[in-house]
Design a protein around this nucleic acid. Structure first.
Length: 263
DNA sequence: CGATTTTGACCGGCGC
DNA sequence: GCGCCGGTCAAAATCG
């Protein structure tokens, strides 16, 4: 599969002090650049999804034929479970071979699993030395358990959304069995609130450091980075996870242009 | 002192 | 019915 390199450097000055130094013209140009970039990313994503679907289909057929055929494996009677394991394996292979820093697979894309609640998987590449099972996603999580599972030597961590007590969302984080530098985060359910009280916290330049520090995951991953570096990293992560992110970014920039124009 | 993490115990589903 | 396994609970420990 072809690899896609996404330039996540937005070349933005996110510090509030710099905002006065940016001219409206610069922001308009940035807006246009981001719009075209968004279009390219969307096209690229569509292309990759099509390739993924095709590969998944081919691999599934091949593995069911060769590896898990009942004739070759008489002991294997639990075909449903094996099928699920095969699918998970295929998902992993495809996701990791995508060569992106972060991939997002939802079950809306999958023709295999149809759970009652919305389940999505996110792969995040970390440094090999990073032993933490924390995936920064803008939400506030409370860890409630950790288990070592049969198919993976690294433990799986269980998180609940603690931003809103009534939020039903759960998250599982585990290192990939194939590549220990990749964290696999599985989200179950949908948030019934915004991220830290805002739909676009990453763009909110007035977001206090306390807001960020409330996210224990953020605290665990900061590792001495400045708040601005963390914000930029968060923006890059959101950009790769959500094709609509640049559109939201453009909206935010538009707002800033209007503010500058009114001053 | 409250919030969060850790970790062993417990529970329920599933296959045999 | 039994054992395995994933998921959750809850008490103790830790942190800010």
């Amino acid at each position: 599969m072809e690899s896609t390199c996404v330039d996540t450097s937005l070349h933005l000055n996110v510090g509030p002090r710099d905002s006065q130094a940016i001219s409206a013209e610069d922001l308009v140009q940035e807006l246009h650049r981001l719009s075209s970039e968004n279009q390219k990313l969307t096209e690229s994503l569509t292309h990759m999804r099509e390739n993924c679907k095709l590969l998944k289909k081919q691999l599934s057929q091949a593995m069911i034929k060769n590896t898990y055929s009942p004739e070759r494996d008489p002991a294997n009677q639990s075909s449903k479970k094996r099928k699920a394991e095969t699918d998970a394996c295929i998902d992993n292979m495809i996701s990791i071979s995508g060569n992106t820093e972060c991939s997002n697979i939802t079950d809306e894309d999958s023709s295999f699993r149809r759970p009652a609640t919305k389940v999505s998987r996110v792969l995040v590449r970390t440094q090999a030395s990073d032993t933490g099972l924390y995936v920064r996603d803008g939400y506030q999580w409370r860890k409630y358990g950790q288990k070592v599972t049969r198919d993976n030597p690294s433990p799986r961590a269980y998180f609940r959304c603690s931003f809103a007590p009534s939020c039903p969302v759960k998250k599982k984080v585990q290192k990939s069995a194939e590549d220990p530098t990749v964290l696999v985060a599985t989200y179950e359910g949908e948030h019934n609130h915004g991220r830290h009280g805002s739909e676009l916290p990453l763009l909110a330049s007035n977001q206090s450091q306390d807001d960020g520090a409330r996210d224990s995951g953020l605290m665990a991953e900061n590792g001495g980075k400045s708040t601005q570096q963390c914000l930029v990293q968060q923006m890059a992560t959101s950009l790769t996870r959500d094709p609509n992110f640049t559109a939201a970014l453009a909206t935010a920039i538009s707002g800033r242009i209007l503010n500058l124009a009114s001053n």
